[in-house]
Each structure stands twice: as C-alpha cells, then as structure tokens.
Simulated assay, not measured.
Amino acid sequence: MSCVHLLDIRFAHNGIEQVITPVLLRDEAETILVDCGYPDFLGLLDEAARRHGIPLEAVTKVIVTHQDLDHVGSLAALKRMHPHIEIIAHEIEAPYLAGIKKSLRLAQAEAMLDVLPAEEKPNGQQFIRLLQSLEPAVIDRTVSDGERLPWCGGIDIVHTPGHTPGHLSLYIPASKTLIAGDAVVVEEGRLEIANPQFALDLEAALRSVRRLLDDEIEHIVCYHGGKYTSDAGQGLRDLLSRYEFGS
C-alpha cells in the first residue's frame, strides 16, 4: 500500500466524535484524493494531508465514489480553490454531482419526511435543507466499470451500485488494495453494508459485495471505519452470510 495514504479525519457532530477516511493515492506524477468530506472540510483535509507530508494544493485529481454529502460536501469549494484539479466520477453519478439531476438522497429524504414520527420531523427537515444547500460540481471526466486508470501502477474502476446507482470502488492490483467508499464499512471490527436501511437498492449492494470477491483483495479501506485489519475475503463472505441466514 505504498502509494495509499489514509486521511483519518476526526470531528464532532452533535457532541459525538466521528471519523471519516478519505484517501490520497500518490505516484511520481499524480496526487489523487478519493472523496473529500462534508461541507467546510477543506481545513481538516489539508491538516490530514500534511500529516503525510502532502499539502492539499499538491492534489491533481479527485475521484468521487458517489454523491452523498459526507463524500462530496467540499468538492465544489476544493475545485474553486484549486482549479487545476480534475474531478472524476462514474458516468451514472456525474449528472447528480453536477446538479443536472436531483440528488437521490434528497429525493429519499423528502419521501421519508411524511412517515417520520412528529418528534423526528425537525431533524428530517434540517437534513433536507442541508442536502438542498449542497453546491454542485461539474465533473471533468467520467469513468465506467472495468476501466483502468494509469496511476499508481493501475487503478481499476469497480462499479459497486446499491448505496447509490453510480457508486464506484477502486482496486489497485499492485498492492491488492480495495478502496471501498461506502460499498462496505467497518463496524465493531467486521465488514457491514453502509446504513442498509438507507441503501437505494440493498439487493444491488449485496451483489456488489459478491462481485468484490472476484478480485484478490488483501487490504480494504472503508470511508467509515478505515482499514479493515482481518482477512478481507473472509470478511466479505461473512457479511454475505449474515444476510443470507438473517443473523
């Protein structure tokens, strides 16, 4: 994983400490950021990158795994501050990121508002306003499943729909590393589906996990939970078995 740098960003939300893990990929020519956190996270991103000796202005490209607020909240601000950065996303996700299509997470939140208990409606309305405030960002380059990007000895695009339709993960064959985005997360030491109750297509999300077993994965980096430290293949199989057997 020599070209892979994990940016563990700790922050407080509603008095609770949270952690997200964007990733920097670096070779002799390019510095690539994978996802960029919530709105107003540029300072936290820069601080985390500098811990690896890499200032944020050194970033040349951003690969976006999907459209959710916690992954792209600072994307437009980052592009505005550093216009040279090339933004890359899956072709299905691009129009949502650019504001051409309505955010699917916003549509989901609006649809759920009517069925929320009365005491939860204010939080639901606040979340909707937050999603509505997300600044769109034009995508410079779209990618599709199976495409290999030429950096770090090759970065394979793996379309992992379910959490959102255009969700992508990245596989780096040289180090057998999967950057999972939200295809899977680490919770209490085991791999799980990210917020399965909010997955836009849970069956597709499980098919995506099955598909990951086709690659020889030794390291999994999750946006929520960081690096998975146990056997990757077994962890993916265990996740699937819990859904198949309901445990």
Rank of each mutant, 00 (worst) to 15 (best):
L130V: 10
L131E: 09
S133M: 03
S133F: 01
L134T: 08
L134C: 06
E135Q: 14
E135N: 02
P136S: 06
A137Y: 04
V138L: 14
I139F: 09
T142N: 03
T142C: 15
V143A: 05
V143L: 08
V143S: 05
S144Y: 00
S144C: 10
S144W: 00
S144K: 13
S144I: 04
S144T: 14
D145Y: 00
D145S: 12
G146F: 12
G146S: 11
E147T: 12
R148Q: 13
R148E: 12
R148P: 01
L149T: 05
P150K: 09
P150N: 11
P150A: 10
P150H: 08
W151T: 07
W151S: 04
G153Q: 11
G153A: 11
G153W: 10
G153S: 08
I155G: 00
I155P: 01
D156A: 09
D156F: 09
D156E: 15
I157A: 13
I157T: 10
V158L: 15
V158Y: 07
V158T: 01
V158F: 08
H159N: 07
H159L: 11
H159S: 11
T160W: 12
P161E: 02
P161R: 10
P161Y: 01
G162D: 09
G162F: 13
H163K: 12
H163I: 11
T164A: 14
T164H: 11
P165Y: 06
P165A: 09
L168H: 07
L168Y: 00
L168C: 15
L168Q: 11
S169D: 00
L170Q: 05
L170V: 03
L170R: 13
L170A: 07
Y171E: 02
Y171V: 03
I172S: 01
I172K: 02
I172W: 07
I172V: 12
A174E: 05
A174W: 03
K176I: 01
T177N: 06
L178T: 10
L178E: 08
L178H: 14
A180F: 10
D182I: 02
A183M: 02
V184E: 09
V184I: 12
V184M: 06
V184W: 13
V186I: 04
V186G: 01
E188S: 13
E188H: 14
E188W: 02
E188F: 05
E188R: 13
G189M: 07
R190Q: 11
R190Y: 11
R190P: 00
L191P: 00
E192H: 15
I193C: 06
I193P: 09
I193Q: 04
I193S: 03
A194L: 13
N195M: 14
N195E: 14
P196H: 11
Q197H: 05
A199D: 10
L200M: 15
L200R: 15
D201A: 05
L202F: 06
L202D: 04
L202N: 03
L202C: 03
E203F: 05
A204C: 02
A205L: 04
A205Q: 14
A205H: 06
R207Q: 10
R207V: 04
R207A: 09
R207M: 09
S208N: 12
S208G: 08
S208P: 10
V209C: 04
V209I: 05
V209G: 01
R210Q: 14
R210S: 09
R211W: 07
R211D: 12
R211V: 00
L212Q: 02
L212F: 14
L212A: 01
D214Y: 02
D215M: 14
D215I: 02
I217N: 08
I217S: 12
E218F: 08
